[in-house]
Simulated assay, not measured.
Amino acid sequence: MASDLKVHSFEEVAKHNKTKDCWLIISGQVYNVTSFMDDHPGGDEVLLAATGKDATNDFEDVGHSDSAREMMEKYLIGEIDGSTVPQKRAYIPPQKAPYNPDKTSEFVIRILQFLVPLLILGLAFAVRHYTKKE
């Protein structure tokens, strides 16, 4: 049967990402699991979350039983064309801007330029209020 399997592109498989039309890629094989959606013990959300990508790790991480692996055979519809699968990208954390003391100093100076006149004005009002002759 392996020689009769159709080769599917990643783009084609990724289009089948709905409850009524769901295909998965697991270990280089393409599975049409549409008819299994209601019966999947983890619910259809689990299967839908595995669409549009290589779901091999998702499948293996769960630790499926031998009987589950045997059951997969009836959903097998083809193989994935590996050259069409996007390369996995490594996570690159965002770079923090290096500490710039000059920028911090500029910020402090602007705050002080705003606050100092207010403090002086407040002090002037307080002095005037407490030194008024009655």
Rank of each mutant, 00 (worst) to 15 (best):
V62Q: 03
T84V: 12
S35R: 03
H40D: 03
T131N: 11
Y91R: 01
H8A: 00
H64F: 05
H64V: 04
M1H: 12
P86F: 02
R69Y: 12
S27M: 15
K15A: 12
L47I: 04
P117Q: 09
E45L: 14
G63M: 01
V33Q: 04
D21C: 07
T84S: 14
E45P: 10
D66R: 01
N17G: 13
M72Q: 09
T131I: 07
F59M: 02
K88G: 14
E11H: 03
G63T: 03
Q95S: 10
A124V: 15
K103D: 05
T131Y: 13
E11S: 03
Y31G: 00
E73Y: 12
K88E: 14
L115F: 15
G52A: 00
D81W: 13
I120D: 00
P101R: 03
L5A: 06
A126P: 01
V127M: 08
G122T: 09
S67P: 02
R89K: 14
Q87E: 08
A49S: 09
Q113R: 09
K20F: 14
V7W: 02
T51P: 01
R110K: 15
E134V: 15
M71E: 14
D4K: 11
E79T: 11
F36A: 06
N100I: 08
T84A: 08
R128H: 11
P98L: 01
M72H: 03
I109Y: 10
M72V: 07
I92R: 15
P101G: 06
F59K: 00
D39S: 05
P86T: 02
P86Y: 03
D21K: 10
G28N: 12
D58W: 05
V85A: 01
H8D: 01
D44Q: 14
P98W: 04
T131D: 12
Q87I: 07
A50E: 00
Y91F: 06
I25T: 03
E12R: 02
Q29V: 05
I111Y: 13
A49Y: 06
A90E: 11
K20T: 07
L76K: 06
L48H: 03
N32D: 15
I109A: 11
V116D: 14
Y130P: 10
V7C: 01
